[in-house]
Amino acid sequence: MNRTTIDLWVGIFVALGLAALVFLSLQVANLTGGTSGATYMLTARFDDLGGLKVKAPVKSAGVVVGRVADVRFDNQTFEAVVTLRVEKRYEFPSDTSAKILTSGVLGDQYVGLLPGGDIENLQDGDAIELTQGAIVLENLISKFLFNSTSGSDDKKEANGPEDEFEE
C-alpha cells in the first residue's frame, strides 16, 4: 500500500476519533451546560436539603438559570445554607421563594425558584427569605402512618360503644 493511501486512511481514522470525542462531549455530556456568562450569588437557608448536591441545577419555570455553588451547615441556626450561582441575565424579585424539588421519581434534586411580585430585584449576596426544604420520603410515610393509625383509633373509639350496644 502506498503512502498517500495510508495517509488518507489515518486522516479518516483521526477525524472519526475526534468526531466521536465531539459527539461524546456535546451530545452525551452536554458541554454547553456550564454557566458561561457572568453570574451573581444568592444564599438560601433550608431546614432540610434532602439529597441536594453542589452543581445541582437551579431552575425557574423549568429552565436552568444557575447552579448550586456551595452547601454548608450553619451551627448557630442548625439550618443548611445553600449558595446559588445564578446567571446575571436572569433577575428575580426580592420576594422570590426557593424550594427543593425532585425531577421525576428517581431523578436528582434541584432548587426551584418561584418569582414574587416585588419591584426591587435580588442583588449579589442577597438571601432568599422564603424557602421550603426537601420533602423527605421517610417523614412523609411516617406522618401518613401516624395519621392513619390515629384516625382508625378514633373511629374505633367512636364505633366502640355502638358495637357494644348492638350486642
Binding site: L21, Q27, V28, A29, G33, P57, D108
Partner: peptide, 19 residues
Amino acid sequence: FWSQMQSAVDLRQDVLNGV
C-alpha cells in the same frame, strides 16, 4: 433518553476520565 443522559454524564468526571 438524551436529556437524562446529558444531565447525568459529566464531561470531565466521566468522558475525559474514560479517555
